[in-house]
Structure formats: C-alpha cells, structure tokens
C-alpha cells in the first residue's frame, strides 16, 4: 500500500467508526464545551433580536386568540418529537430530522425561532444533543438561519409558481444544508486553521461532515414533502385553520 492508500483507508475507518456510533444526530448540534466563552456569548447576542421578535409576535397571536397557547405548545412538542423519531435507514445508523424546516414552512420563522430554542434546551437536557453553553450558536444555526432560508425559499418558489412539492423539498433540504454550513463556519471561527485561517477551517469542517450531512439534507427534503402530503390526505380543514392553505 502506498502512503496515500493507507491514509484514505484510515480516514474511511474513522468515518465508519463515527457513523456507527448511535445516534449521529442529523442536526449537527455543537456539543457542550466546544466553544470558547466569547463565542458562546456572541452567538447568544446574535440570536437575541430574532428571539425578541418571535416573542413579540407570539404575544400578539395570544392576545388575539388565547386558545392559540395550546396550539403553539403542541407545535413545539411536535417539532421535538419529529426530531426524536428515528428515520428508517438501511445502514442501521440512526439519523433524525431537524423538524425546524417543517415548522418554518407551517408557522413562519419568528414562531419557529422560539419553538426552536425551547426544543434545543430540551434536546440538550433530555437527549444529550448539544449543550447549554453552545445554545446560542445552535439556536442561530438551527432555529434561526436554517428556518429563515427555508421560509425564504418557500416564499420565492410560491412567487415563481414552482410545483408545491418541489418547493417544499427545496426549502427543507436547502434549509438543512444551510444549517450545516453555518455550524461548520461557527466551528471554524472557534478553531481557525493554522495555515488558512477561518475559511480553510470552514472547508475542513464542511468536508468532514459532508458524507453524513448531504444525504441527510436530501432525506429531510423528501420526508418533509411526504409528511405534508400525508397530512393533506388526513385533514385539509385543520391545515387551513393554522394558516396553511395554498
């Protein structure tokens, strides 16, 4: 074996090993303790305006209709459960959806930011995905940036009169990809490469997580479409009631 072959072989063992550990959370939560304090605070501060906007919007919704409280809470619980359900797969490794894309399409990005941060706290404590010091960074990537892109793409597709299933797929899959890109950049800012700085480091992180994240983004897209289709076949009026009737 040449040196190159040896290294490729080693790398593939490492990846296989990593993938065999269950669960490989889809969401790419940054784990507890991974970020330096300045960045923990910085990402939290970046999230604040979005969260405040979300709270103000929710207050408005509840002021108009108090009954919406249990509806919104149910939606939050649903996002958590959706992200906790194991996606069936042939390889046996367990992966999960983020669920926030689904929420962004149905409830919009500002409600999703609040539901997202609550779900992330629960994931950290109940499932050991992510952490408390990294909550700000994870909230930004998974509850704000990803859903915003999803929502934007879904809106754009609607304007361009793209087929609905195609737009749901694109919105969910690209939102998922964006989350993973943001996470990679967040890690790169924390750990820039000695030779190439943040940019090079970001490429490294993107590369190493790509084998799991690319297929998962596609799966997230497909499943979101299928779930929407399944829902519509169950109940159109309920969907209308929550403002999804296109």
């Amino acid at each position: 074996m040449t040196k190159l072959q040896k290294n490729v072989w080693k790398a593939s063992i490492a990846i296989a090993l990593a993938l065999s550990v269950c669960p490989v959370s889809n969401a790419m939560h940054i784990m507890e303790g991974f970020l330096p304090p300045a960045l923990c605070i910085a990402w939290g501060v970046v999230c604040l305006p979005f969260l405040v906007k979300g709270l103000i919007n929710l207050k408005k919704i509840f002021a108009e209709n108090r009954r919406a409280v249990t509806l919104v809470a149910m939606a939050g619980a649903y996002v958590f459960v959706l992200s906790a359900l194991k996606i069936p797969s042939v390889t046996g490794s367990c992966s999960h959806m983020t669920g926030t894309g689904f929420s962004a399409i149905l409830f919009g990005p500002s409600v999703t930011s609040i539901l997202g941060i609550i779900v992330l706290v629960f994931q950290a404590i109940l499932l050991a995905h992510g952490g408390l010091t990294t909550l700000g960074a994870n909230t930004f990537s998974m509850a704000i940036a990803g859903p915003l892109l999803t929502y934007g793409i879904f809106g754009l597709c609607k304007k361009l009169k793209v087929n609905k299933n195609v737009s749901i797929f694109l919105a969910a899959a690209l939102g998922d990809l964006f989350t993973y890109c943001v996470t990679s950049v967040q890690l790169a800012i924390a750990y820039p490469s000695a030779s190439g700085g943040v940019a090079a480091s970001a490429l490294e992180f993107l590369g190493v997580f790509a084998p799991t994240q690319l297929p998962l983004a596609v799966i997230e897209g497909i499943l979101t479409v299928l779930i929407m289709m399944a829902m519509e076949s169950y109940a159109r009026p309920e969907l209308k009631a929550i403002g999804y009737g296109r």
């Binding site: 108090r66 009954r67 409280v69 249990t70 509806l71 809470a73 149910m74 939606a75 619980a77 649903y78 459960v81 959706l82 359900l85 996606i87 069936p88 797969s89 497909i222 499943l223 299928l226 779930i227 929407m228 289709m229 399944a230 829902m231 076949s233 169950y234 109940a235 309920e238 009631a241 929550i242």
Partner: peptide, 25 residues
C-alpha cells in the same frame, strides 16, 4: 416503504396534535 410509513405517522401525528390542542385548552 419505510419512508412512506414514517411520513404517514408523522403527518397523522401532526393532525392529531392540532386536534388535541383544542381539547387541552
């Protein structure tokens, strides 16, 4: 089939959760 079943469960669960929310209020 697994994907279809997963999506069927998830879709049904969502509708169910929205219906329950009414009663819970």
């Amino acid at each position: 089939q697994g994907f279809r079943t997963f999506a069927g469960i998830a879709g049904n669960l969502f509708i169910l959760s929205m219906q329950k929310a009414e009663r819970y209020y």
